[in-house]
Design a protein around this nucleic acid. Structure first.
Length: 408
DNA sequence: TATCCACTGGAACATAAGGTTG
DNA sequence: CAACCTTATGTTCCAGTGGATA
């Protein structure tokens, strides 16, 4: 008979390393917290709130600090009867226009059953509905738009909302926007008029360095992990890996959590650096697979073309050759092929996702072009394609070729 | 010094598929 | 139903680019 047994040799409270965990105190961000509180002061004083714009890489504490401070703010403001504060948070990751953000906000505010559909209305009609909902709530409203860079240059909402009172669209409600962005360039590409208003107060969150990450890990580990279950140097190692890569606390915590899970599954009593190393490569693999899952058919075929080239040891490799490979793949999988320009777009996307890398090739009279190659281990790419794609035959062929070339 | 290669990347446009309203 | 809305994806067109070459 199989039997389940509780394993508790490593973790005491694993959730403390998870995404949704809210720590009691935030480490290493005192300065940002001071500035942030200063920017929020008008809310307490009962004035119109500032619009605030936060930027910095993923995992540097923007969302964590926001959640932490707004909780505190709500609590402290309840002492003043003339301030009626509502906070509305929305993650815009999958919302790539102002229109969709506005629709999502309206639906969030409406009772279930009263939601509106995500297309069909003129944009201004959606904004009107949003104003109506905000008026309904009244008082001071803080709108937290996380990962706001997803809306790209369709930023009308960011122009409209801060001016809503001046334009008599809002009367009772005092709205403050808090925009959070992972992308430094996003700020600069905004309409200058939007920059003026949205970026009234700007907070920059720099990446954590290795010692800071180690402190953060230390304080979380003391809650999450059993005493003595971490070998010397493990936290330092996690911190160093994350600092070198992204400066992200999220990444450092993920490494530690996964390393712990690996140790636990192997029935060990402590996490070692080897476990961290194993966690690192697994996270890398997951990142690649995640990226591939999002791809369209032709995005996958374009990637498969590069993988196939890599199997034949023909990478790095110029666009033209990849395109030819792509055409044969299309044929053998009975898919209509796209124009070269479109495949070029897919290759650019793959480059953004960090799955491909490109070297600029300036060879004078023979033209300037990119040479693409895989930016992830060949084997993880094939594994991920296998899990994600429905092109078994083609992958088998590529596997065979790779074996012949001793590359797998 | 002008020309040229082999692209890159931006922009306008097309199409189809989802939806609204009156 | 027609008229109108947004979105996703792809197409067509074109102005750069910059070192090698004639």
């Amino acid at each position: 008979m199989p039997r389940f047994e509780r394993k508790q040799n490593i973790f005491r409270n694993k959730d403390a390393l998870g995404e949704s965990y809210q720590p009691e105190t935030i480490e290493e961000r005192e300065e940002e917290i001071d500035q942030y509180m200063d920017a929020l002061q008008p809310v307490v004083d009962g004035w119109e709130p500032n619009n605030i714009f936060l930027y910095g890489n993923t995992g540097v504490g923007k969302t964590a600090v926001t959640d932490y401070l707004l909780d505190q703010l709500r609590e402290d403001v309840s002492d003043y009867e003339d301030v009626n504060l509502s906070v509305i948070s929305l993650n815009c990751k999958t919302l790539n226009s102002s229109y969709q953000v506005a629709v999502e906000l309206v639906n969030k505010l409406r009772p279930s059953g009263g939601e509106i559909s995500s297309t069909g209305y003129p944009q201004q009609a959606v904004f009107k509905k949003l104003y109506a909902e905000l008026e309904d709530i009244g008082g001071t409203i803080l709108l937290v738009l996380d990962e706001i860079d997803a809306i790209g240059d369709r930023d009308e909402l960011l122009y409209e909302l801060p001016r809503a009172r001046a334009n008599d669209n809002l009367d009772d409600a005092k709205v403050g926007l808090i925009g959070i962005s992972n992308d430094f360039k996003f700020r600069d590409q905004l309409d200058p008029r939007v920059q003026d208003t949205l970026c009234e107060r700007e907070l920059q969150f720099p990446p954590y360095d290795a010692p800071e990450l180690e402190n953060i890990l230390q304080s979380r580990a003391s809650i999450a992990i059993v005493d003595d279950a971490i070998k010397d140097g493990v936290l330092k190692f996690c911190a160093a890996l994350a600092a070198r890569d992204s400066g992200s606390a999220r990444q450092a915590l993920d490494l530690l959590r996964l390393a712990g899970e690996i140790a636990e599954n192997n029935d060990r009593d402590a996490i070692t650096e080897d476990h961290v190393e194993a966690a690192r490569s697994r996270l890398e693999q997951e990142r690649v697979e995640e990226g591939m899952r999002e791809l369209t058919t032709h995005g996958r075929l374009a990637l498969l073309a590069v993988v196939s080239k890599a199997a034949k040891a023909e990478t790095p490799c110029r666009t033209r050759d990849i395109y030819e490979e792509y055409l044969t793949l299309c044929e053998s999988s009975d898919t209509d092929s796209l124009a070269q320009r479109s495949v070029h777009n897919h290759l650019s996307d793959l480059r953004m996702l960090g799955i491909l890398s490109a070297n600029e090739n300036r060879s004078g009279s023979r033209g300037n072009y990119y040479s693409y190659e895989l930016d992830v281990p060949f084997s993880s790419a094939v594994e991920a394609m296998d899990d994600v794609l429905r092109l078994d035959e083609e992958i088998e062929t590529i596997r065979d070729i790779a074996t012949m070339n001793n590359r797998s």
